[in-house]
Design a protein around this nucleic acid. Sequence first.
DNA 1: TGTACATCAGTGAACGCGCGTTCACTGATGTAC
DNA 2: TGTACATCAGTGAACGCGCGTTCACTGATGTAC
Lengths: 200, 200
Amino acid sequence: MKKTKKETAQTREHIVGTAALEFRRNGIERTGLADIMAAAGLTHGGFYRHFESKDDLVAEALDKAFTAVLDGMERRPVQKNSGEALRTLMNHYLSANHRDNFEDTCPLAALGSDLRRADRRAREVASAGIARMISIVGSRLPGVSAREGKARATAIVGAMVGSMVLARIVTDPGVSNNILKAAREFILQCTENKSLEVSC
Amino acid sequence: MKKTKKETAQTREHIVGTAALEFRRNGIERTGLADIMAAAGLTHGGFYRHFESKDDLVAEALDKAFTAVLDGMERRPVQKNSGEALRTLMNHYLSANHRDNFEDTCPLAALGSDLRRADRRAREVASAGIARMISIVGSRLPGVSAREGKARATAIVGAMVGSMVLARIVTDPGVSNNILKAAREFILQCTENKSLEVSC
DNA sequence: TGTACATCAGTGAACGCGCGTTCACTGATGTAC
DNA sequence: TGTACATCAGTGAACGCGCGTTCACTGATGTAC
């Protein structure tokens, strides 16, 4: 049953991709290796031909998830000197669709409190993801200095992640929608308005 | 070994209190019933004299954690018509001490992404906690209408929770401190300043 | 190019281990008389 | 008030079960000649 090098690499990537989805959907601890391998169309015994441990897969899957989500964010065109780019970004991130669909969800919103307890490597991957997300949001901020922009982008990323976490916890769908709406409006109002550039 | 009714009630509360701490510190799934019972000075066999299931304890412990944390928030005096009350609240919540110390930490920041996957009862307790926290933050907002205040308080709670989650994930302590600082400043600047009352 | 052998991706069973839950038992408490 | 018995909080062992990990095996691929 030996496979071509190319096939082996494809299988490995397929496992990582499946894991990236399953971890975000069901959490890292609730997702067993057998679940992932089965979802990838394999049996669990072959897992250790590709990875050293579950933690190894966690770090790689997390990296893949961050890359996919942040590449997607970055791919949207940036309209200079206007709040349009930020508005687009917020409307996507803080949407009911993002809340309900885990296919390409932000790993921070999906796994936030799990990541604190993950091993060092996973936390390092997450730290890099956070830094990159802050940088992307910062590049969409209308008319502020780079330094002030970074601080604001940091706070905005915190608001994005936290609001999505809360929107997913809440049992009432109306309340959940209100949380997303409140976050969108707060963030946009606090950055878009020209009169706020200095004071806010 | 039968105990007085009073003793039994005390034991039960002691278990709930221990669980409230352990769940927040190590996560719900990683914290075993035997761990909790041992931390409470008991053996795990007696657990089912007090609770129907682990989920039962989870819901009660969560409720106790929310009550303790939110009562603490509410206990701080409210200075009317100034941003002082909000500043005090943010300086406490978004502090390095709150980040590092789990004795009385916010369950939302500690268990955010776990709660989405918890059972219905736990999510209902969390939903009530979120609503109460929004109400408390709203009552500290300087000079806005009740309706606008609620929307803003909702966004601010999202920013508080998300920023604490991120600050705990990040491996670099300096970056972590910056996340907390950025959130404090963003939230206060966007609410405190009189010139923003209408536009922001 | 063809042959013989080493490699190794994938299978399926098995391993410890920890978990939530159950249970027989103990002995102090509460209750009925 | 005192006695006899039912109750039940807590113990410690045991139960399935699922998990991460290991392993003997298979058979197609890659390599050495």
